[in-house]
């Protein structure tokens, strides 16, 4: 069979979705650990941020991969969701989804869309200003500015609230997504029980950790 047919197959798409999801979760974990330092030590936070913001490998290799990864993930998410809706042209008058599956698993497109909207806000808040600061206006580096920029953003209760809400939905996205991605790549074996537990823990600890960080800065500055 032609390779192109295989790449277009449902399973290839599923695996691609899983790999992009796994990659985004890795990114999320490292982002979380960096942000966590802002709670304990503004200096550490500043120096890691400065390193990440000026290291050529991070800036010119990892960052573009990440952006492509995010775009791929949500475009694929919307594409698959549309395809799946088309697979049932006439819907049931009565459909009891809760009887056999979790809300999180049935509403990945909703939790994902909220996370996407959040990413828009997040880029507007941090990424665009940072890119303009560094590459358009070409300002002095000022390795200690990061912490203030962060703390300032969380002064607004509305923004802090939006952040918290988005992370709640990210938690739901990962509650299903973490374990789903392993199943998608074909990993269902004697480690699955343990990895499910880890997946649920990940889906709680990371998003709620982010919520803690946002609230910490909101109430402390």
């Amino acid at each position: 069979m032609a390779k192109s047919t295989m790449l277009k197959s449902s399973i290839a798409k599923k695996v691609a979705m899983a790999l992009s999801g796994l990659f985004l979760m890795l990114f999320l974990a490292q982002h979380f650990f960096i942000n966590m330092t802002s709670v304990f030590s503004p200096d550490t936070f500043n120096s890691i941020s400065h390193f990440m913001g000026n290291n050529p490998l991070v800036q010119y290799v990892i960052q573009p991969i990440l952006i492509v990864g995010v775009i791929f993930h949500f475009i694929m998410g919307f594409t698959l969701d549309l395809k799946n809706r088309n697979a049932r042209p006439v819907s049931y008058v009565k459909f009891d989804g809760a009887a056999n599956s979790s809300w999180a698993s049935r509403n990945m497109i909703i939790s994902g869309s909220v996370v996407l909207a959040f990413l828009g806000l997040h880029f507007y808040d941090f990424w665009f200003p940072e890119m303009i600061y560094k590459y358009v206006d070409v300002n002095a580096l000022e390795p200690t500015r990061y912490f203030h920029e962060l703390a300032e953003k969380f002064e607004s209760p509305v923004r802090t609230g939006l952040y918290c809400f988005s992370f709640l939905l990210l938690s739901l996205h990962l509650w299903h997504g973490f374990n789903s991605s392993f199943q998608s790549v074909g990993a269902n074996n004697k480690f699955t029980k343990a990895s499910h537990k880890f997946g649920y823990a990940f889906a709680i600890v990371i998003p709620f950790g982010f919520i803690f960080i946002a609230l910490f800065h909101h109430f402390n500055h």
Partner: peptide, 26 residues
């Protein structure tokens, strides 16, 4: 349509076919 691993099929299958089979197929 395309599987998103909701697991509903496994619950409703009258013969108890496990999701393991989908992972194996993948």
């Amino acid at each position: 349509g395309n599987c998103t691993n909701t697991g509903a099929c496994e619950v409703e299958c009258p013969k108890g076919i496990s999701l393991e089979n989908i992972a194996r197929m993948n």
